[in-house]
Amino acid sequence: MPEFIEPEVQKMRGSDSHNTISLLVGYTAGNDEFTNVLSGVETRDIEAIGNTTYRVTLPEKEVDSVCTIEGVVSVELDNDDVYTLDSEDFQSQTGSIM
C-alpha cells in the first residue's frame, strides 16, 4: 500500500470510467522494473521523471491497479505543475513563498 494516495485519486479507485487521466507515481526501484510491473495494467503512456517518479497516462478504471502495485509509494494526479529540467516550459513561479 502506498504511503500517500492523493484524496482525488482515492475517490477514483473502483471507477469503471474509460476517461484518460495522468498520474504521478512514486516507485522504489528503477525504470525497467516499473515498466515490467505495469505490464498487466492498461496504460497509454509512461514517462520517467527523475529516477523514481513516473507520469503514467491511463484510463481512470486502472487507478486501483496502480495503487495496489508492490513498491508504489505515492500516487497523485498530474496537475501540470511538475516540470523536468529539460522542459522548455520551465519558468520561475512568481509569488512563491519559498
Rank of each mutant, 00 (worst) to 15 (best):
I5E: 06
I5W: 04
E6N: 10
E6T: 06
P7G: 10
P7W: 04
P7I: 12
P7D: 10
P7K: 13
E8N: 15
E8S: 15
Q10W: 08
M12H: 12
M12T: 00
R13M: 15
R13W: 03
G14F: 04
G14Y: 02
G14S: 06
S15L: 12
S15W: 05
D16A: 10
D16Y: 09
S17R: 06
S17C: 03
H18L: 10
H18C: 09
N19T: 09
N19C: 06
N19M: 04
N19Q: 13
T20G: 02
T20Q: 07
I21E: 06
I21L: 15
S22M: 03
S22Y: 00
V25N: 00
V25H: 01
V25L: 01
G26F: 04
G26P: 04
Y27M: 07
G30D: 14
N31C: 00
N31F: 00
N31W: 06
N31V: 04
N31T: 10
D32I: 11
E33L: 09
F34I: 01
F34G: 02
T35K: 14
V37M: 02
S39E: 11
G40K: 12
V41F: 00
T43E: 01
T43D: 01
D45Q: 13
I46D: 03
I46Y: 00
E47L: 11
A48I: 01
I49M: 14
G50V: 02
G50E: 08
T52V: 08
T52D: 08
T52K: 08
T53W: 12
T53H: 14
Y54C: 02
Y54P: 00
R55P: 05
R55N: 08
V56N: 01
L58Q: 01
L58N: 05
L58G: 01
L58P: 00
P59G: 06
P59N: 05
P59R: 07
E60R: 12
E60M: 13
E60Q: 14
K61P: 00
E62T: 10
V63H: 05
S65W: 01
S65G: 03
V66I: 08
C67R: 02
C67F: 07
T68V: 10
I69P: 00
I69C: 03
I69N: 02
I69S: 05
G71L: 10
E76G: 14
D78T: 06
N79S: 03
N79T: 12
N79C: 01
D80E: 14
D81C: 09
D81P: 02
D81Q: 11
D81Y: 07
V82E: 11
V82Q: 10
T84D: 15
L85S: 09
L85M: 13
L85H: 04
L85Q: 10
D89Y: 11
D89L: 11
F90C: 07
S92C: 05
Q93N: 07
T94P: 00
T94Y: 11
G95C: 10
G95I: 09
G95A: 09
S96C: 07
I97H: 11
I97S: 13
M98V: 09
